[in-house]
Computed example of a mutant assay.
Amino acid sequence: MTSLEGRSVEDGARPQVRRCAAGDETALALAGKATFLESYAGMIDGQAVIRHCEERQTAPYYAAALADPAQALWIAEMAPNAAPVGYLHLTGPDLPVETGPGDLEIKRIYLLSRFHGSGAGRALFEAAYRFGVEQGAARLLLGVYKGNEKALGFYARMGFETVGERSFDVGGAVYEDWVLARGLQGGLGS
């Protein structure tokens, strides 16, 4: 057994990342609720977390995203039972910074903390990077809560830099985010 973030996982067990398709909406909603709660419990208002999950972490929300050709989603699953442990949602940019036709937004990227350090977060990011390169995109952008130090550290290691700020509504409570960007030229780097 190996320890990831103080919890045990089978030796060699690593989440597998794959592109989502119609039928994955229930797994995405479960991963969305679990990872959002785990990421923000105790950090932001609990009722706001509940409301956010009831509104934006639902199977119909993800079914609509999967049906939209302008959006792409990937899921991280544990073999052999395909239990969802994280996901990535990529869209056109909807951020309060100057964007161009070659920009894509990582709308959401979450992974259960048990799997931080497993390489799954990087694999999700790499999926977005490869997709962006294939689409001829210039940059990946994302918003991240200013108080989420772990996520900020991960994004810095992935080559993101701060390009702005935004206010973000989570279940009726407003929080401040950094807007980060990373070019898609020059390879993946570290």
Rank of each mutant, 00 (worst) to 15 (best):
K146G: 02
R130H: 05
H89C: 05
V163W: 03
T162I: 08
A65K: 14
E105S: 12
E38G: 10
V170L: 04
G164I: 14
L30K: 05
R19N: 05
P101K: 08
M78C: 14
D45C: 01
A41Y: 05
Q47C: 03
G12E: 05
R108D: 11
E54D: 14
I50Y: 03
L88H: 01
A83S: 09
V97S: 13
V17P: 04
T35H: 00
A128N: 08
Y129N: 12
S3G: 09
V17L: 12
L95F: 01
A83V: 08
C20A: 04
D94S: 15
G187E: 08
Q71L: 02
D45G: 06
G32V: 06
L66H: 14
K146T: 05
N148R: 02
I106Q: 05
A72L: 08
L112F: 04
G159P: 09
A31E: 10
I109C: 10
K107R: 13
S167A: 15
A79K: 08
L188R: 04
K107I: 01
E176G: 12
L66W: 14
D94I: 08
C20H: 02
A123L: 05
I50R: 10
L95W: 02
R7W: 03
E5R: 03
L88F: 01
Q47R: 12
Y129V: 13
Y62N: 05
I109A: 06
R139D: 13
E10M: 02
A27Q: 14
E134S: 13
Y61E: 12
G143K: 07
S118Y: 03
S3W: 08
Q57F: 07
G189V: 06
H89P: 00
G159C: 07
R19G: 03
A27D: 12
R56Q: 13
G119Q: 02
P80F: 13
D24T: 11
R182M: 10
A59L: 07
T35G: 03
N148V: 00
L140H: 10
A138C: 07
T2G: 09
A137K: 05
G46F: 00
L141P: 13
L111G: 01
A64Y: 09
A181V: 04
R166W: 01
D68H: 09
A127R: 10
G171A: 14
V49T: 14
R130M: 03
A151M: 07
A31P: 04
P101E: 13
L66S: 12
L95C: 01
V17F: 08
D24G: 10
V97W: 09
Y145K: 00
R108N: 13
A67Y: 06
G164V: 14
F160Y: 15
Q135K: 15
G102V: 04
P101M: 05
L90W: 11
Y129K: 06
L152K: 08
V133I: 15
